[in-house]
Simulated assay, not measured.
Amino acid sequence: MTRRSLQTGAMALTLSALAGMAEADTAFDHRFTALTGGEISMADFAGKAVLVVNTASMCGYTYQYQGLQDLADRYGARGLVVLGVPSDDFRQEFNSADEVKDFCEVNFSITFPMTDIEHVTGEDAHPFYRWAAVEGGAPAVPRWNFHKLLIAPDGSLAASFPTRTKPEDPEVAARIEAVLPGS
């Protein structure tokens, strides 16, 4: 058995296990704890496009925060919400929500909403990420920080972009523009 087939088999097992745990019909059926306390209900974003990104403060891709903020600024008035989901699944996040919040405010002037630190992979993944894995298969499962999931205004998974696809990539803009309300 090759390494590739082992990885594919492991991914299928993971997706199969996650399928049994996904209980939502759309992305808007989920809730997160906000980084600043309180709750973020995805239902509040119904009718908007949402770019959900698992983030990390000490990653080689952390510079993407700036591109995400630029997207929020560019498309926010047209119905895009960028939602940051800090995760330490890849061992590159601070230990506390306060550290993440301070880092993002000081270094990137982040104004888009952010959740508390969450798991985004495996059986401990937040229910939103389990739902996305079922809806989008392997391409929707984060393999590293700054994996991007685009949610359409109806709550369906419209696209997923791997870590290396920068927020300013023309493909990201094109997919966002295609699902913006009124497009």
Results as ranks from 00 to 15, higher is better:
residue 167 P to H: 03
residue 172 V to M: 00
residue 165 T to Y: 13
residue 165 T to V: 14
residue 157 L to G: 05
residue 174 A to T: 09
residue 164 R to G: 15
residue 158 A to F: 03
residue 163 T to N: 11
residue 156 S to W: 06
residue 156 S to Q: 12
residue 175 R to Y: 11
residue 173 A to T: 10
residue 159 A to T: 06
residue 149 L to M: 06
residue 170 P to R: 07
residue 149 L to D: 02
residue 165 T to N: 11
residue 176 I to S: 03
residue 170 P to I: 06
residue 173 A to N: 10
residue 150 L to S: 01
residue 163 T to S: 13
residue 162 P to D: 14
residue 173 A to V: 12
residue 155 G to Y: 00
residue 154 D to S: 13
residue 177 E to M: 02
residue 164 R to P: 14
residue 177 E to P: 00
residue 161 F to H: 09
residue 157 L to K: 07
residue 166 K to G: 15
residue 165 T to W: 09
residue 153 P to L: 09
residue 177 E to K: 07
residue 156 S to D: 14
residue 176 I to K: 00
residue 174 A to E: 10
residue 149 L to H: 02
residue 177 E to A: 05
residue 168 E to N: 15
residue 167 P to A: 09
residue 160 S to R: 05
residue 170 P to W: 09
residue 165 T to F: 09
residue 176 I to Q: 01
residue 149 L to Q: 02
residue 168 E to P: 12
residue 169 D to Y: 11
residue 157 L to Y: 03
residue 170 P to K: 05
residue 152 A to H: 05
residue 162 P to W: 07
residue 158 A to I: 01
residue 171 E to T: 15
residue 157 L to D: 00
residue 152 A to N: 06
residue 162 P to R: 14
residue 170 P to A: 13
residue 155 G to T: 12
residue 165 T to P: 11
residue 175 R to T: 10
residue 177 E to I: 04
residue 159 A to R: 00
residue 163 T to I: 08
residue 172 V to P: 01
residue 159 A to K: 08
residue 163 T to R: 06
residue 159 A to W: 04
residue 152 A to L: 06
residue 150 L to E: 01
residue 154 D to F: 13
residue 164 R to C: 14
residue 172 V to H: 01
residue 150 L to M: 09
residue 172 V to C: 08
residue 151 I to C: 10
residue 172 V to F: 03
residue 172 V to T: 00
residue 168 E to K: 12
residue 172 V to E: 08
residue 165 T to D: 13
residue 160 S to P: 05
residue 169 D to N: 13
residue 150 L to W: 03
residue 152 A to R: 06
residue 163 T to C: 08
residue 166 K to W: 15
residue 176 I to V: 05
residue 152 A to W: 02
residue 159 A to Y: 02
residue 149 L to T: 03
residue 169 D to G: 04
residue 172 V to D: 00
residue 176 I to R: 00
residue 169 D to Q: 07
residue 150 L to Y: 00
residue 148 K to Q: 08
residue 150 L to R: 01
residue 177 E to Q: 11
residue 160 S to H: 11
residue 155 G to Q: 11
residue 149 L to A: 05
residue 154 D to C: 14
residue 158 A to R: 04
residue 155 G to F: 09
residue 162 P to H: 08
residue 164 R to Y: 15
residue 173 A to K: 11
residue 155 G to N: 10
residue 176 I to A: 00
residue 161 F to V: 03
residue 170 P to V: 11
residue 151 I to H: 02
residue 164 R to Q: 15
residue 175 R to S: 12
